[in-house]
Amino acid sequence: MNIVACIKRVPATETQPKIAPDGKAMDPALAEYMLSFYDEIALEEAIRTKEAAGGEVTALTLGPAEATKEIRDCLARGADKGSLLTDADWHTRDNRTTAKALAAQVTALGAEVVFCGRQATDRDNAAVGQMMATYLGWACVTDVIELTIDGQKATAKRESEAGIESFSFDLPAVITCQKGLNEPRYAGLKGIMAAKKKPIEESAPELAENMTEVISVELPPARPEGRMIGEGTDAIPALLEALRSEAKVL
């Protein structure tokens, strides 16, 4: 099976962002980057699908030249090749532009199933997977926690407020992956060595114009300073009193 895992280079989890001088973005120069958390789950599911059905896994991203680091990470874990849509301004692209560029490359690669993380941990929109599927005219199930692929037929489970929902669909499809779907593997030394010989194809994507206008980006307001009520069980009456008469939440 021809399998694609869409991944994204995102600021490392511990990043304390600073605002860029124009006030419209996070200062990209100040951040450490990593593979987005949910994309590790997407990649793992892609590799497991290949292990079950045969085929090839391509790690695909829209990113800067430096994103070869995140692609190598995927190759070390078991992807066969990388596809980098090189775009120095990747962090300014909106989800529509990104989804269109990825959809075009998914078509060019001839993929039958695409795995994405449920959301990238930078913009947190959780939108590109569904948008890509819609542009491709494919089935899509989001936030998947259980997946079964049998030939061209598939079933997937996701959790919503209503409960655990089961969906059935045919490939080709886009699956967005939620924590719980699998336990991502780490790259071993052998994988890291092998990754150095695996190909990464870089190409310049065709980019639709952004339709998102950023008005401003700001840091969230700081919380007013709280107070220490006391120590141990002795502090309980004072806490309840504060919750009742001061905070008025009881």
Binding site: N95, R96, A99, D124, N125
Partner: peptide, 23 residues
Amino acid sequence: STGTGRDLAPRVAALLDSPCFSD
């Protein structure tokens, strides 16, 4: 911004060829 709404809105956005703002 529920499990259902967040699943649907990006699809609607793509069909209207517009971006989607979540949450």
